[in-house]
């Protein structure tokens, strides 16, 4: 899986309340959630980003709540992947489970520039820049890569239910 998009830079400790404020948690339609993505930090983020754009942030991205609404809002707003120095663990799991790649890269936030086009190569754990340079990223264990390839845990579960004929 290679994800190509324009870089949006963010800082450390981007929390779930700025990714998707609590007052919208009563919404369950991902497209409605998307309209409020990152509302706490960037006004009208969802209308400003292009499909496939890549968020590149500092440490502890997604800290706070277990709300899956947060990665859902980002995904449906069009975010192709979130690259961060580190993630909070619940956000990391949630993102992968809903099919939004969360990629750990210790150096990306320091090296990449706002607005540049990059290609995130999940299998090989690298982020390629237009100038041919590559920034290293952590590779996923196979079972997580499989979930992402299926488009999320839901599709993965569907397959499993079918295969094991849980009835």
């Amino acid at each position: 899986m290679i994800l190509k998009g324009k870089v949006w830079l963010f800082g450390d400790n981007v929390d779930t309340d700025v990714v998707l404020p609590g007052k919208y948690l009563v919404l369950t339609d991902p497209n409605e959630l998307a309209e409020h993505a990152l509302e706490g930090l960037v006004a009208d983020f969802s209308s400003k980003i292009a499909i496939g754009d890549i968020i590149v942030a500092g440490k502890n991205f997604g800290c706070g709540s277990s709300r899956e609404h947060a990665p859902l809002a980002l995904k449906y707003a069009g975010v192709g992947a979130v690259v961060a120095r580190s993630f909070s663990r619940i956000f990391y799991r949630n993102a992968i489970n809903i099919g939004l790649p969360a990629v750990v890269s210790p150096r990306a936030r320091d090296v990449l520039k706002e607005g540049e086009i990059v290609a995130v190569d999940l299998e090989n754990g690298r982020i390629e820049r237009k100038n041919g340079e590559a920034v290293e990223a952590e590779r996923y264990p196979q079972f997580l890569l499989d979930i992402l390839k299926d488009g999320g845990l839901l599709q993965n579960l569907k397959k499993r239910v079918e295969k094991e004929k849980i009835k």
Partner: peptide, 18 residues
């Protein structure tokens, strides 16, 4: 520990989690 909603769906079906 806290988990997300989709993961919880997986727990509801299988009774397990990684």
């Amino acid at each position: 520990t806290g988990i997300g909603s989709t993961e919880m769906a997986s727990v509801f079906i299988t009774g397990e989690l990684w």
